[in-house]
Amino acid sequence: MRTSHTVEFTSGLFMALGLAALVFLAFQSTDAGGVLREGSYRISARFGNIGDLKPRAPVSVGGVTVGSVESIELDGDSFEAVVTMKISTRYDALPDDTSASIFTKGVLGDQYVSLEPGGSPDVLADGDSLFITQSALVLENLISKYLFDSEEEEDSE
C-alpha cells in the first residue's frame, strides 16, 4: 500500500510538471506571452503603403518593443492600409501626436512599426488613430527614383 501511494504521488507530480512546462512555454515563448500577462490597448494608423508588414510584427518606441501589429486592412474608400496595433498598457502615456513609420530590420529583415512620440500633453487612448504616418520604403521605388532622377517627391508622402 505504501509503495502504491509513492507511485501515485510521483505520477501526479510528473503531470503537474508537464502542466507547468505547458504554461511556461506558452506564455514565455509564444505570442500568447505579454498579451495575457498584461493588458493592452489598440491604436490604429493609416499608411499609403505598408510594404510587406505582417500581422504580429513588433511595434517599437525608440527600439524597445511596446506591442504588436494586430491586423492590417484596406480602407475601401481611401485605399489606404489601416494598421491596428496592440500596445501594452505599461506604455499608456504616448502623446496623441505620436507618428508612426514602417522600417525594416537590417537589410533583409522583417518590417516593423516604429512610433515616434511627439510633444502633445494629451495621451493616446484605446481606439485612437495616429495622423502622422510614414509609409514603408519600397526598395524598387527608391531604385527607380534614383535611376530616372524624376521629380516625384510630392507623390510620396
Binding site: 515563448s29 509564444t30 506571452g33 513588433p58
Partner: peptide
C-alpha cells in the same frame, strides 16, 4: 531573446 520569440512563435 524572449520578445523575439514571443513576436514570432505562434501559440
Amino acid at each position: 531573446y524572449w520578445s523575439n520569440m514571443q513576436s514570432h512563435v505562434s501559440l
